[in-house]
Structures are given as C-alpha cells and as structure tokens.
C-alpha cells in the first residue's frame, strides 16, 4: 500500500512538472510578449520591464529562472496587475475551493442515495425515473442550469441573490449549479456498482442465512457497491474545480476562473503559471486521497 501511494505521489509530481513546462512554453508560442499590448510604453521603460521580468533572456533561461523562483517558494509577480501572484491566488483560491467542495457535497448527498435507491428498486418506475433524471442532469450543462436557477429561484427565495459573493448563503446556488451534473454521474455509477454487488453470491448467501434486508445492504452491499462511485469522486472533483469557471461567470463569483482565462488571454505569464500550479497540486492531491480511500475500501487493491 505504501508503495502504491509513493508511486502515485511520484506520478503526481511528474504531472505537475509536465503541466508547468507545457504551460510555460505553450503560452510563449503566441507571437509577441505581454508588454506589447500595453499602450505607448516608452522604449526605455519597456526595456526596463523586460529586464525585471527576465523577458529579455532566451526561453530556456527564462524557464530555469522560473524554477529557481519557484524553488525559493515564490511564484513571481503578475505582469499585468503588478501584484505578487501569491497575493492574487490567496484571495481567489479559497473561493474556488469553497465552490468546489460545496458542489461536491451536493453531488454526493443527491447522487449516491439516488443511485442506491434506484439499484434497490431495480427496473421499477423509481429506477427508470431516477435514471432518466440522471441522464437529463448529464445533458444539461451548468450554463443552462445556472441562469435558470438565478432567474426562477434566486428571485423567489429572500436570502438568495442572483449574483455576488458575500456570506455562505451565496454559496448555495453556485454549488447546486455545479453539483447537479456530478450528482447525475454519481447516481448512475452508484446504481451500476450496487447492482453488480447485489447480484453476487455472498449477498445471496446472506439472504439465505436469513439476514434482514437492511443489514445486508448496510453491512455487505454498500462497502463494495460504493467503490466505483468513490473512484469517480477524485476525477470528478478535478472537473468541478475547473468547471467552476463557468459558474463563477454566471454568478459573478471572484474565484480563480476569471483570473485564469484573463491571464491566458493577456499572456500574464507568471499569474498563469501560478494558477496552473495551484490547480495541478489540488487535483493531484484529491486524486491521491481518493486512491488511498479506495485501497482502504477494496482489499483486492492492497496487494
């Protein structure tokens, strides 16, 4: 098990290095440099700026400088905003994480019970209805759900706002918007996992032995039946965090999404690197946590 974790950790580090390197050289493929867009910068000032940001050096040298800064624990300064990247991130990152986590929470509390119930009532009206709703949830994107919730729910419920980011009440609509699609996937996966387990011999044995329905489900079926759903939560969380870009736009939430899109458009090199680094670390960590949980739940993976 320790070997698996170390292996995954190593792979995660490779993922992050690849991501940073790819971003670094990709964004520099775009013709021009971040300072060309700025209007009427005197040549002298421009040259000075180029020097400050090391843009006058060749790309491989810039790359090495970037790693040097990073290994010293710094992320550089945003070329456009003239603020430390770490400061911009420390303001917007918590917002993105809050939306991601509350979205995941909503997905789990809706998706997993729905999947379990659908599996227990296999081929009934409840099952078919749930699966139809799940397919609907998968097919309707956040940028359709969001405006609908904003229009029809936010205007009706007194403490909900159409847009903005103040207290925890403002988390509700963005999180629901974000979580519904994942809830739908989770419901389908949970149902399939439960159906698979419920058809196995040890469940029949438990039934034959006279164990009651409730204890069969809780003691025997759930543990194995939920494995595929938990395996999905890792990658799903990554999708939620990046998927929140859209939700941030709809509900005007000051998260990392807008910074990321703008940093890419404006070629704000260091801000972009910082954003990508954070997303990378977050996603690798979540996947690692999911892997550990999975090995714990599924003894067959422990070898």
């Amino acid at each position: 098990m320790l070997k698996t974790i170390l292996d995954r950790l190593l792979q995660g580090i490779v993922v992050i290095i690849c991501l940073l390197t790819l971003t670094f050289f990709l964004i520099r493929l775009v013709p021009g440099d971040p300072l060309t867009d700025e209007k009427a910068m005197p040549p002298q000032v421009r040259a000075e700026n180029m020097k400050i940001f090391k843009l006058d050096k060749s790309q491989p040298v810039q790359y090495l400088y970037y790693w040097k800064t990073l290994l010293q624990g710094e992320m550089g300064i945003s070329i456009k905003k003239r603020q430390p990247v770490s400061m911009i991130i420390s303001q917007s990152f918590p917002v993105s994480v809050i939306i991601g986590i509350t979205g995941m929470f909503i997905a789990v509390i809706i998706g997993i019970p729905a999947g379990i119930i659908a599996a227990l009532k296999h081929n009934s009206l409840i099952d078919n209805g749930t699966m139809f709703l799940a397919m609907l949830g998968i097919s309707i994107p956040t940028f359709v759900v969001g405006p609908i919730l904003a229009k029809f729910v936010a205007t009706q419920v007194p403490f909900l706002k159409v847009a903005g980011w103040g207290g925890p009440f403002d988390w509700i609509l963005p999180a629901i918007t974000l979580g519904l699609g994942t809830a739908a996937y989770l419901a389908r996966i949970t149902r399939a996992g439960m159906l698979d387990i419920l058809s196995q011999d040890f469940i029949r044995t438990a039934k034959a032995k006279g164990a009651d329905q409730k204890s069969i489900i809780i003691k025997h079926a759930l543990k194995g039946g939920l494995v595929p759903a938990i395996a999905y939560i890792g990658p799903a969380f990554a999708m939620l965090i990046t998927g929140s870009f859209v939700v941030e736009t709809i509900f005007q939430v000051p998260g990392m999404g807008q910074h990321f899109v703008n940093a890419t458009k404006e070629r704000d090199y260091f801000l972009l690197q910082g954003m990508v680094l954070l997303f990378g670390v977050l996603i690798v960590m979540v996947n690692l946590a999911a892997d550990i949980l999975l090995t714990y739940l599924n003894p067959r993976l422990r070898s």
Partner: peptide, 17 residues
C-alpha cells in the same frame, strides 16, 4: 500522466494559443 492533467485548463490554454 496525461489523464492527470486538468482537461478544461488545457483546453482553454490550447484554444487561446
């Protein structure tokens, strides 16, 4: 490794570039 890379982030980045 490619699976570990965040899809939407790369799509946005590649698309703009």
């Amino acid at each position: 490794i490619l699976y570990g890379l965040p899809f939407l982030i790369l799509v946005i980045l590649f698309s703009i570039v």
